[in-house]
């Protein structure tokens, strides 16, 4: 059986908000290491990989591996009934038909109990090769969100060019063109507000902004975002949170 108690409902609510538009149904894979999810969007262009480590829950118990097949829209509806500060407990039996969710207010004067029907999802687990990326860019998550939003007004695509001079996001469309260049900065007081660029070689890749804008729905989960790129491979966008991460992979646009 699974029993996982999470101190802040907000973490799960924000996580759902960040993935439910890309993925409709997914298995939440529960093991003694924690709860993970890996799913592609319908077009097979983007992939979401979520990990909520066991140590992010208190307590966490999972006797044997379980795949909880969940409709993310349904889970999102149920989580709407939880206040951000509520304590959430997830429970499932071995070979479960339902997931039980309990929301307790901080001072335990209100307890809400929901049961959600589970579904069978036949989902392949993808092999994502370990990659030593040529460019690793860490920047404020809000900055990345703003750049993607602003450039999506210009074009459907953005070309990200990482070089020793900085990282340049450039778009060209019918109405004209625009770009934003970020230089490396160092803010020791507020590391989350710094931009760092680690580079072993220059990288230039083009991506659909529709997906990137979608990824930035994870902005409330983390102060910083990390973009990892190598030429001719998918982009990895990572939001690290306490007790886990939310990663997105995006296939590049290639010259026809």
């Amino acid at each position: 059986m699974l029993e996982a108690r999470l101190a802040q409902a907000a973490v799960l609510k924000k996580t759902l908000d960040a993935i439910k538009e890309l993925v409709t149904d997914a298995n939440f894979d529960c093991s003694d290491g924690g709860i993970s999810l890996q799913a592609m969007d319908n077009s097979h262009v983007a992939l979401v990989s979520l990990l909520l480590r066991a140590d992010g829950f208190e307590p966490y118990r999972c006797d044997r591996n379980l795949a909880l097949g969940i409709n993310l829209n349904s889970l999102s509806k149920v989580l709407r009934s939880a206040q951000n500060e509520d304590i959430i407990t997830l429970k499932a039996a071995d070979d479960p038909d339902n997931l039980s969710l309990t929301f307790e207010s901080q001072n335990q004067d209100r307890i809400s109990e929901y049961e959600m029907k589970l579904m069978d999802i036949d989902q392949e687990h993808l092999g994502i090769p370990e990659t030593a990326y040529a460019a690793v860019i860490t920047m404020p998550a809000a900055e990345f969100q703003r750049i993607c939003r602003d450039l999506s007004g210009i074009s459907e695509s953005v070309t990200i060019d990482a070089s020793k001079d900085g990282v340049k996001f450039a778009s060209a469309g019918d109405i004209g063109n625009g770009s934003v260049t970020l230089k490396q900065t160092h803010n020791p007081e507020e590391p989350a507000l710094s931009t760092s660029i680690e580079l072993s070689e220059s990288v230039t890749l083009t991506f659909s902004l529709k997906y990137l804008v979608n990824f930035t729905k994870a902005t409330p989960l983390a102060g910083a975002v990390t973009l990892q790129m190598s030429n001719d491979v998918p982009l990895l966008v990572e939001y690290k949170m306490e007790g886990g991460y939310l990663r997105y992979y995006l296939a590049p646009k290639i010259q026809d």
Partner: peptide, 14 residues
């Protein structure tokens, strides 16, 4: 002109 690639070209089992 650029074309959207698919993750299946990069990840096994996709």
């Amino acid at each position: 002109k650029s074309k959207q690639s698919s993750l299946s070209s990069f990840f096994s089992g996709a």
